[in-house]
Structures are given as structure tokens and as C-alpha cells.
Design a protein around this nucleic acid. Structure first.
Length: 803
RNA sequence: GCGGAUAUGGCGGAAUUGGCAGACGCGCUAGAUUCAGGUUCUAGUGAGGGUUCCUUCAUGCAGGUUCAAGUCCUGUUAUCCGCACCA
């Protein structure tokens, strides 16, 4: 027998699989379909991270198992290749991002192929390919035509020293990442997408899909639906300030009101505000802070009182001071609040700082002068007029009913979710296919002109005054209006990286189609995605954006399902050996090339699955990797003990059936670590016995194939039934043979284990108790004591309570 | 501050429904084998106490429910991830 030579084996089988196209997914096959999806990678210059293959191997196992179960499986791969790092590298090294992208993709492709994933490479997609982004632009045009895209002034990060717009990522601790210069907020007109119009449906339809509960929770919390009321406060100027509150019950406890510094009423009332200079100064100060900074400084509240202005509490007619403060955001609710310091901790902080009264209106907590009492489940209303005596739950609707009757307010549902800022002032993204005409406004370019290809320009530096680098491409910008034929200019902003990744899974279904993003037949056949796995870091944005686009495409009749993904799971991060995030600066990065070179792809895959609980973060261990290599070697060396016998021998039969059951079930539950452990145990059983039949060896090879496909194919060629193991049938088990005839149960006295007993499986409760009472140890330990109670759990234990 | 998660031997982790805590692997110890080894095999391995056997303690911390708690409840601490102070 030759020794285990993974190098030649892995290359050999990768070539054979490719040649025979056994991972080819057939559109419209008669077999049942199964669509497994992993998040397509951003092809970075750093190459593959050992974290990538964790997800890829997991779903590769599922994909391979499904093929063995007779499904027509689609397991595709592609590149999310637009983005900032490539663009910044291009600026620095004066190379076109296209060239860098191609290099990075080539490297990623080599690395992924060396790991033996069963991707259908014929369906590879690339978001930067004009044949791909043609359809990204097409979807945007449909959104535009349906009124879901609009322009609005939004703040951008502006580096005062580089004089360029920056992404949030490039702002580190409030300063520019490149030069350390001051970053301020500048307003710029940006394209927005009305995702908020889908907020309710994005919550409701979660009921129809099988996502991990924590993922659903995060989606819901991000969308953040709240039911409350809008309440009108008359101001001393005669103006009306509308506030949003979820705690209408506390209206009698309002002791002041706050507007966000950007609130339009401030400007309107400027002649009545006697300290307007101070107000302006505060507004300027607030404009400097990014939202990130406002969050950071949350504890120390700041604000300015609007002198000579007061608001009237509609519940009791009290005059309340009006403040502006940046802890109130213009983007949420109405941009103004009524402050109830007794029952909201932020209001409480502010009230303490500005020495404002704190009036208790919900009893049940400690002293509200010392701490805000925010519990809505306990406590009764006090000091609250007609609400006094009610519970909070009763008082909220009672107050809103009263406000509605008096015309002072109304019920209102609010969402935290905000519309999606869709413009980027960058080069390496999809051009937005619109032109601006002085006569006609913003006009869509004809669909026949798609794709609108990125123009070639010399430098990719961001434009001055916060404009896109495309602003320099004058030839490209100047065009004619498709509507009136007059002169017009193209939009120079590009789309965010999220655009291409919001629909890529549809393109996989029919990647070479030139007439549609995918054919109706392909969409009907493959939709929806059966299982999608990805990182927790994408559970809010990417997942939400792609669900939103999918729902829109459903509404306009392009896709056949309301939801894109039937099932969504997530994996944990792989950390460095020192338990910290892998990074160049920490020097703890593990290079997949080196691992595969030294131990092979199969050992790498096996270790990635064995490393720990799939959904949790876990540190890399070179020793652990070695252990998995040793396991594969032991499997290989079992060849030495194959005998002429057939079938399963009686002393291994039960182990084999149990292992088939456990491995299959564990794969489905994503408990890959225990599935591998079960196979290790079976190998231990085989070795211990010292002789196995060919059938016993073969069943091990089948079970192990999805994890370590190359080695098992090689051994199958020698010992199997011919053909590719990768498409051989998944084994079945006999439930009856997974059950032991005799089982060991535990005998306890007062909950402490005192003896163990072997009894026939299936013995009933009375029989079990009877057998327990026969135990010599139990007899001697209970002698002279009163037996109060005997608890028996058949098949598990007997607990005798004595005194 | 808000939202989500996590905490079990020297290490990664297991325990599917409240029912033997520590499966499996790493590491370590001893022995065998190889001319030396980082190879392979065998046995042992949570801690403490008496030593074939037994016993006490032990799942971040403090309480509670239960015949029985890693698992359920209340409180608390630490760490990680995300964030848009969400009224």
C-alpha cells in the first residue's frame, strides 16, 4: 500500500471532476432542485482568508450530500468585485482597478479550486462585468420608474484637508484615515431608495422563512417598528411643534421639549428667539459632528435653551421650555420630543445637567430624583389627571384616544429604518444610468443603451468639492436628453457595493442571458434559494437590501417568490491562535496556501469543520489541524486491515448504523464538529477490532466524502463500486439497528449517583424500579432509612429519595 | 446608551427534551517500537481527600425552583459583534 500522498490525489480528482462536469447544475432537469448559496467573496489583494472556507466547506458538504441524495444541485460562485480597497490601491499605484480586480480574481479562483469545492464554475459571475452590471442598472431604472428612487440632500463626510468626500470606513476617530485631517459633515444631493416603503413587509414576511431566530430578531430590531403617537404642542410664537412619543401615558410628566438642531422650525422662529446667536453656534457645532461622534458623546448631554420661547403641554396647559440638543435626531420620528425625565434615562441625564424639574407620573420605582423609572410592565399612573390609577398599558391607549378626540394628536407607527443612501462619489462602481436635462429634470436612459459602461479616465482620485471622479470625464458626461433631445449631463455618482450583491443569486440561475437578468423558466425552476449561509455581519444590511430588491422585483412580476431565501444560517469567525481577529498588523494571519501545501485540502476542510461550533468564533490551532491530518491518515491506513468478509459484522453493525444516522443528522443541523467526531469514533472502533470488511470500509468512505472528497474518491476507485463517489447514493440506516439491546442506567440516592445497572432496553418503569431495588449497593445504602419517593425515568435512571 | 451573542478541564469543544458533566480532538504523563528524532502503537489524564474501592468539590459570580439544573427563573460580572442616543 502506498502512503497517503494528498498532493497527487487532490490534483488528480479536481481534474477528473472538472472533465466529467459532475458538479454541473442543469436548468430544468427532472430531478428535484436544490439551491445552496454562500456569500460571494470580495476578491481582495490579500487573497483568501481561512475564514472564507468555513462557510464554503459547510455548504459544500450540504451540496454534496444533496447530490448523493439525488438532487439537481446549484452551488455557484462569483465575485463581488466593485469596492473601495481596489479603488484605493488603484489610486496609490496608478493601475486601473479593472486590472487589479482581474489579478485578484485569478488568485481567488486558484485558491478556491485547490480546495475542491463543488461549485459549478460555468456559472461564475462578476459584478464589475458590464454584462452583469447591465442588469444591476436595469433594476435601478425600474426602481426609478416606479418612484422608489429620489434625490435628497444628505450629509457626507468631508475631509477639510484632502478636500474629498470619505466613506464612514475612512473616518477613524473623527479624523481622515489618510491624512488625519478634520472631517466635517457636508450636505450633498444624493440618490436615495425608498426601502422604508417596504418596512412592514420586510417584518411580516419573516414569518414565511426559516432563518435562525437571532437573525430574524436582528432584522426586526433594525427595522425597528414602534407604535406611538404624534402629539401637537402649541408654541408661544403660534407655531405648532409635533413630537413623536411611544409613551403618551407620561404626557403629564413632560417638563420640557427638545428639537433636533436641524429642525426647520428653528429657522422659522429665528426672530422670536432672543439668543439666536447661541443657537446658531450650537447648530454649527452639531454639524461638525458625525453621527458616530454624536453617539460617542451620548453620556454628556449638550443643548441650548430657546430663550423667549415656550411650548404648551396639551394635557395640562403648562408652559414648558424648548431646547435644541443633538441627542434628538432629525432623521427619526418628527425630529422633536417631549421630555419626561422621570421615565426616560436620556431625558433624565439632560434634566439633571440643565436643572429641570423631574415629575413622577408612574409609581412603582425608586426615587425618580435619583434614577429614571422606565419599566412599562409594573406601576400605576400618578399625578396624571384622568389617567391616574391606570396601568401604563391602559394609560397609553387612553391618552391617545383623548388626544385624537380633542384633535391634539394621533396614533402613529414609526420605523427606525431609514431610506437607503444609494450614491457614492467614487469611480469603481456601477454608473447610475440617468441624465439630467435642464428642461426635463432627471431622465432614465433608454434600456437599449444598457449597459452604461464606466468611462476610461486617467486618475481615480475623488473629485474636488466632494464630486465623483467621473466628474472629470467631460466627454462622457455631456450627452443629449433621451426625452427632448436637448443637452443633458450624466449622473456622475456611482452605486454602492451593495447594489451588485442585492441580486447576484438571481443571475446564477441563468448567467449568460442577454435578454433578461434571467429567463422566466430559470427563475421558476431554481427559486427560491433553499439554503443561504453567511456571516453575522451581513444580517442587517445585505440581507435587508437584497430582500427589499427581491420584493420589488416580485411586485413588478420579474421573480416568482416574495422572499429570495428560504433558509438563512450564519457562521462564526475564525480568529488567530492568540484568540484575536486575524490581521496583518497583529501578525497572526494563517495563509490557506501554506496549509494546503503542508497538509492538503482534505485535512484543511476537515479541520475547518472540526475546529469548533460552527456558529461561534473560535481560534485557529496548528496542532488541531495536525490532529485532523492524522485522522485522515488513519482512515487511509485502514486499508491494511480489510479482510475478505462481506456486509457488516455483528460487532460493528450497531456502530455503523448509529454513525450513518448521526453524521446525516449533524450535517443538517450544521453540527459539523460532532459529525467529524462521530466518524473519528467509528474509525477508532474499526482500528480496535483490527479487521474490517470492504463494505464496512466503503460506508465510512461515503460518509466522509462530503468533508474529505479527494481522498475518499481515491480510495473508492480502489475499493468501491466504480463511478464517482461524489455522486454515489447516500447510505441509509436501519433505525432498529441503532438501538442497543442492553442499556446502562444510573441509580441515584437523593440525586447522587450510587450505582450503575445494565438492563434490557425497553424495560418499563416498574421493571426498572424492581431491578434497581435488587442492587446490593442500593440495599445497603437504604437500609434503616425511610424511602419517601422513587423516581424512575425508563432508559435513563432511578432516583430514590430517602430520609 | 441600545440591539444581538458568549462564558464548561491545561486548550478547542460535547452534552438533541431538565436525567451519568467533560464525547471527539489537541496537549501532557508512562510504557513499547523505530539507530537519534518531530513517526507509530498501548495505557492514563477535571481538582482535592483517603488509595484495587470509595468520597467531596466542580459548567463566569450570587440567589431561587426541582427528586434532579451546564440546561429553567431572578439578579450580577466579564468578553465579543453590530449600531443610526430611535423618544
Amino acid at each position: 500500500m502506498e502512503s497517503y500522498n494528498f498532493k497527487s490525489i487532490e490534483k488528480k480528482w479536481q481534474d477528473k471532476w472538472e472533465e466529467a462536469k459532475i458538479f454541473h447544475a442543469e436548468n430544468g432537469s427532472d430531478k428535484p432542485k436544490y439551491y445552496t448559496l454562500i456569500e460571494f467573496p470580495y476578491p481582495s489583494g490579500a487573497g483568501l482568508h481561512v475564514g472564507h472556507p468555513r462557510s464554503y466547506t459547510a455548504l459544500d458538504i450540504i451540496a454534496r450530500k444533496r447530490r448523493m441524495e439525488g438532487y439537481n444541485v446549484l452551488y455557484p460562485i462569483g465575485w463581488d468585485a466593485f469596492g473601495l480597497p481596489t479603488e484605493n490601491f488603484a489610486i496609490k499605484n496608478k493601475v486601473h482597478p479593472k486590472i487589479i480586480t482581474a489579478q485578484n480574481i485569478a488568485n481567488f479562483t486558484r485558491q478556491l479550486k485547490m480546495l475542491g469545492f463543488s461549485f459549478d464554475w460555468d456559472r461564475e459571475v462578476n459584478t464589475t462585468d458590464p454584462n452583469y452590471y447591465k442588469w444591476t442598472q436595469w433594476i435601478f431604472l425600474q426602481l426609478f420608474k416606479h418612484g422608489l428612487a429620489y434625490k435628497q440632500e444628505m450629509p457626507i463626510n468631508w475631509c477639510t484637508s484632502c478636500k474629498v468626500g470619505l466613506s464612514n470606513e475612512e473616518v477613524v476617530n473623527g479624523v481622515c484615515e489618510r491624512c488625519g485631517g478634520e472631517v466635517v459633515q457636508r450636505r450633498k444631493s444624493q440618490w436615495m431608495l425608498k426601502i422604508t416603503e417596504y418596512a412592514q413587509r420586510l417584518i411580516d414576511d419573516l414569518d414565511e422563512v426559516d432563518y435562525l431566530e437571532k437573525i430574524k430578531t436582528q432584522q426586526k430590531n433594525w427595522i425597528g417598528r414602534s407604535e406611538g403617537a404624534e402629539v401637537k404642542f402649541k408654541l408661544s410664537t403660534g407655531d405648532e411643534m409635533v413630537v413623536y412619543t411611544t409613551r403618551a401615558d407620561t404626557l403629564f410628566g413632560a417638563t420640557y421639549t427638545v428639537m433636533s438642531p436641524e429642525h426647520p422650525l428653528i429657522e422659522k422662529m429665528k426672530d422670536s428667539i432672543t439668543n439666536y446667536d447661541e443657537v446658531e453656534a450650537y447648530k454649527a457645532e452639531a454639524a461638525k459632528k458625525s453621527e458616530f461622534e454624536r453617539t460617542e458623546l451620548a453620556k454628556d448631554k449638550t443643548g441650548v435653551k430657546l430663550e423667549s420661547i415656550y411650548a404648551i403641554n396639551p394635557a395640562n396647559g403648562e408652559k414648558l421650555p424648548v431646547f435644541i440638543s443633538d441627542y434628538v435626531l432629525v432623521t427619526y420620528g418628527t425630529g422633536a420630543i417631549m421630555a419626561v425625565p422621570a421615565h426616560d434615562s436620556r431625558d433624565w441625564d439632560f434634566a439633571k445637567k440643565f436643572d429641570l424639574p423631574i415629575i413622577e407620573v408612574v409609581a412603582g420605582g425608586e426615587d425618580v430624583q435619583k434614577e429614571a423609572y422606565t419599566d412599562v410592565y409594573k406601576g400605576k399612573m400618578v399625578n396624571s389627571g384622568f389617567l391616574t390609577g391606570m396601568t401604563v398599558k391602559e394609560a397609553i391607549p387612553a391618552m391617545i384616544d383623548w388626544l385624537e378626540k380633542e384633535g391634539l394628536g394621533k396614533r402613529k407607527v414609526n420605523f427606525k429604518l431609514r431610506d437607503w443612501v444609494f450614491s457614492r462619489q467614487r469611480y469603481w462602481g456601477e454608473p447610475i444610468p440617468l441624465v439630467h436635462c435642464d428642461k426635463c429634470g432627471w431622465v432614465a436612459i433608454p434600456e437599449s443603451e444598457l449597459p452604461l459602461v464606466l468611462p476610461e479616465i486617467d486618475t481615480f482620485e475623488p473629485g474636488e468639492n466632494g464630486e465623483s471622479p467621473l466628474a472629470k470625464a467631460t466627454d462622457w458626461i455631456n450627452t443629449t436628453c433621451p426625452h427632448c433631445g436637448g443637452p443633458a449631463q450624466r449622473e456622475t455618482d456611482t452605486m454602492p457595493q451593495w447594489a451588485g450583491s442585492s441580486w447576484y443569486f438571481l443571475r446564477y440561475m441563468d448567467p449568460h442571458n442577454n435578454d433578461a437578468l434571467a429567463s422566466k423558466e430559470a427563475l421558476e425552476y431554481w427559486s427560491p434559494i433553499d439554503w443561504y449561509n453567511g456571516g453575522m455581519e451581513h444580517t442587517t444590511l445585505h440581507l435587508l437590501y437584497s430582500r427589499f430588491w427581491h420584493k420589488f422585483l416580485y411586485d413588478i412580476g420579474v421573480v416568482p417568490t416574495k422572499e429570495p431565501y428560504m433558509k438563512r444560517t450564519s457562521h462564526g469567525m475564525i480568529l488567530g491562535e492568540n484568540n484575536e481577529k486575524m490581521s496583518k498588523s497583529r501578525g497572526n494571519v494563517v495563509n490557506p496556501d501554506e496549509v494546503v501545501n503542508e497538509f492538503g485540502a482534505d485535512a484543511f476542510r476537515t479541520y475547518e469543520m472540526f475546529i469548533g461550533a460552527f456558529d461561534q468564533s473560535t481560534p485557529w490551532s496548528q496542532q488541531g489541524l495536525k490532529g485532523c491530518y492524522k485522522f485522515l491518515e488513519r482512515v487511509w491506513n485502514l486499508q491494511n486491515i480489510i479482510t475478505d468478509g462481506e456486509g457488516y459484522t455483528s460487532d460493528l453493525e450497531s456502530s455503523i448504523h448509529k454513525t450513518i444516522k448521526k453524521v446525516g443528522e449533524d450535517f443538517e443541523r450544521m453540527k459539523f464538529n460532532t459529525a467529524v467526531a462521530a466518524m473519528m469514533s467509528l474509525v477508532n472502533d474499526y482500528s480496535k477490532k483490527g479487521a474490517i470488511t470492504k463494505d464496512e470500509y466503503k460506508v465510512l468512505l461515503i460518509l466522509l466524502n462530503p468533508v474529505a472528497p479527494h481522498m475518499t474518491e481515491e480510495l473508492w476507485e480502489k475499493y468501491g463500486d466504480g463511478g464517482f463517489l461524489s455522486i454515489h447514493a447516500w447510505p441509509e440506516y436501519d433505525e432498529a439497528k441503532t438501538v442497543d439491546e442492553e442499556i446502562e442506567i444510573v441509580l441515584q440516592i437523593n440525586g447522587k449517583i450510587r450505582d450503575k445497572l445494565t438492563i434490557p432496553a425497553g424495560l418499563d418503569k416498574d421493571g426498572t424500579v424492581e431491578a434497581a431495588m435488587e442492587s446490593e449497593r442500593i440495599k445497603s445504602l437504604t437500609e434503616g432509612k425511610t424511602i419517601i419517593k422513587v423516581i424512575a425515568v425508563p432508559g435513563k435512571l432511578v432516583n430514590i429519595v430517602v430520609k
